[in-house]
């Protein structure tokens, strides 16, 4: 068999519904600086056409050794080129968002240090790839793609409009020690989400429980880009729950540089009245297969406690999508 995930290109456009506020000029400067460090061979691999939809949609929660990524692996860049690539991401993301990138990369170094089943495929340089789609410009659309095992950053700019989705974050293990410090890459997201579901009354919890079956992974993970989302299920957010729901959405949205993130969060806040929360299996941070969901008119967040053969305990997978702005595109028809 060829690959384990097939990426069938869907028609993306540039009409996505973004409230704007992007720091596009600064990102363009940083992206140009990165591209300027590349020779023609590397540039041909990294700077791809903005119209290459299939490549733009190529991201995964599997390691790059299992699902090949586009662009070039960090290990194949010189130190200067790698520094420029990371500097580009640092400008585009908030301090929290950038730190999360570094922390998720550290998790792969940690997995590699455990050895065993397929551990060779892990590592902060081996498994992380960078690509730039289109010519970075303050007026024309372009996209930055950075990711690997347990991380997908897809940042699409179009003037002041920006999309940070689809976004995948995960952490295996959920927490580990690196350089004498405890690292928990998805701690902000997981803490707020589990707190939200822990706060539910028995009645609300019953109303939020999904009835359509059981879950062992995300429904809207990689290769689910055709704009079809599951039928809306669960508990419509009550006035009393709004603060905690917003607090659970915030760590995802806040990965983007400040102003755009604030505008986007305000949009999701205005839609809370028609946003649903739902869960399946369990709701505890260490429980088997805890599955949590926030499903709004625009926002879609899924979180699951999953397992692999590399570590003994559950680990986190989470995807954040925007139904009206994934890849900066309106919903494909």
């Amino acid at each position: 068999m060829g690959s384990v995930q097939t990426f069938t290109a869907v028609d993306l456009n540039t009409g996505g519904d973004s409230p704007g506020g992007a720091n596009t000029a600064a990102v363009v400067t940083a992206a140009q600086a990165f591209l300027a460090t590349l020779d023609d061979t590397l540039k041909a691999k990294i700077n791809l056409a903005f119209t290459d939809n299939q490549s733009r949609q190529t991201w995964s929660n599997f390691p790059a050794s299992t699902v090949a990524r586009k662009g070039v692996a960090l290990k194949d860049l010189s130190e200067a080129q790698r520094a420029a690539a990371l500097a580009m991401m640092k400008v585009a993301l908030s301090p929290e968002g950038y730190q999360q990138v570094l922390n998720i990369q550290k998790a792969d170094d940690y997995l590699n240090s455990l050895g065993g089943d397929g551990a060779d495929g892990f590592g902060n340089l081996v498994d992380y790839y960078v690509a730039v789609y289109g010519t970075p410009s303050a007026t024309a659309p372009f996209m930055l793609q950075f990711g690997g095992h347990h991380l997908a950053r897809n940042l699409t700019y179009n003037g002041t409009k920006v999309s940070e989705t689809p976004q995948f974050v995960g952490s295996e293990p959920t927490s580990f020690t690196s350089g004498g410090q405890t690292v928990a890459p998805v701690k902000d997201e997981s803490t707020a989400l589990f707190a939200l579901f822990a706060s539910l009354s028995a009645g609300d919890k019953a109303a939020a429980k999904l009835s359509s079956g059981t879950y062992d992974d995300l429904m809207m993970g990689p290769a689910h880009d055709d704009g079809v989302f599951p039928a809306s299920e669960g508990l419509t957010v009550t006035a009393a729950q709004k603060t905690l729901v917003l607090a659970a959405i915030k760590p995802y949205v806040d990965d983007l540089a400040d102003d755009a993130a604030a505008k986007l969060l305000a949009k999701y806040e205005s839609e809370l009245g028609s946003t649903k929360i739902a869960w399946a299996n369990n709701t505890g941070p260490e429980d088997e297969s805890s599955y949590l969901r926030i499903d709004g008119p625009s926002v879609w967040i899924e979180f699951i406690n999953t397992r692999s053969r590399s570590t003994p305990n559950i680990h986190y997978h989470s995807v954040y999508r925007d139904k009206t702005n994934d890849y900066g595109s309106t919903k494909p028809s």
Binding site: M1, Y215, D217
Partner: peptide, 11 residues
């Protein structure tokens, strides 16, 4: 039909 998130690869 039970595990909604399961995937079946057909080749």
């Amino acid at each position: 039909h039970t595990i909604v998130s399961h995937q079946v690869f057909v080749a």
